[in-house]
């Protein structure tokens, strides 16, 4: 059983997202270690991009902060290498294709393998363009985690069949960000995935409070929370570790 499978085998998974380098690589490193200690099951690490087209204003601002602080792909890979020496939590990169392509897709995924990254999510590579990244993921044993949306409909069958790690279910239209009403489409989306493949489904985009997390975890295998955490980081800056850990604990308590 690989690290991601193990994470889902323990019950509902809580998956926090943070942007690497916001506010600094050092703080990101501490945040990952501390969130893992607090019980986060998988951690999504955003590699900042200048033009994050699937992000709402909160995460876009985090990308700007990280890049303004001089964060680079190399620094992030080095950071993961250090984290892996002290922490076994599954780590998944979330980024856009251009930073990966520019690094050299083969070289990037080879490095991911060497430093112990478990999966990658690239929102601007849809099923049709999977050859851009999937063969390299397979070569190095990195899970290529796909997204499905309420608009995916029949495409869910195609996507689920080839999915690895877990399926990232976008709970509502639009970009990332905190929302009150998350809609109900994902119940049918997840049912459809499960008909095709027995693979964990985690819901993301828009989840912020313990009540939402509880409701959504009941119909899925886990919840992904990004913007709500990034907001805390924005508010507290380098002093964010305590408040983030407290928040993560409250969310985990709600879904278990």
């Amino acid at each position: 059983m690989n690290r991601i499978e193990k994470a889902f085998s323990k019950g509902k998974a809580f998956i926090p997202f943070i942007t690497a380098g916001d506010p600094s690589i050092e703080v990101t490193e501490q945040l990952i270690i501390e969130m893992a200690k607090a019980g986060a099951d998988i951690i999504e690490i955003g590699i900042p991009f200048s033009d994050p087209s699937a992000e709402g204003p909160v995460i876009q601002a985090a990308d700007v902060r990280a890049l303004s602080a001089g964060t680079t792909t190399d620094q992030i890979l080095e950071m993961v290498k250090r984290i892996r020496k002290v922490c076994d939590v599954p780590l998944v990169f979330m980024t856009y294709i251009n930073p990966v392509f520019s690094y050299g897709t083969d070289r990037f995924l080879k490095t991911c393998k060497e430093i112990g990254v478990d999966g990658i999510i690239v929102p601007d590579v849809p099923y049709e363009e999977r050859d851009e990244i999937k063969p390299f993921c397979e070569k190095y044993g990195i899970a290529c985690i796909p997204l499905i949306a309420p608009t995916s409909k029949d495409r869910i069958d195609l996507i689920a069949k080839e999915a690895e790690g877990f399926v990232y279910c976008v709970s509502s239209f639009g970009v990332t960000g905190v929302r009150e009403d998350l809609g109900h489409d994902f119940i049918d989306m997840i049912k459809r995935v499960k008909l095709v493949k027995d693979i964990p489904c985690a819901i993301g985009f828009g989840i912020s409070n313990p009540d939402q997390a509880k409701t959504l975890s009941e119909v899925s295998d886990g919840v992904i929370v990004g913007s709500a955490i990034v907001k805390i980081i924005e508010e507290y800056g380098k002093d964010c570790i305590g408040p983030v850990v407290e928040y993560v604990k409250s969310m985990i308590a709600a879904i278990r």
Partner: peptide
């Protein structure tokens, strides 16, 4: 190269 949500 666009997000899944736009593919259909």
């Amino acid at each position: 190269y666009i997000p899944e949500v736009l593919m259909n």
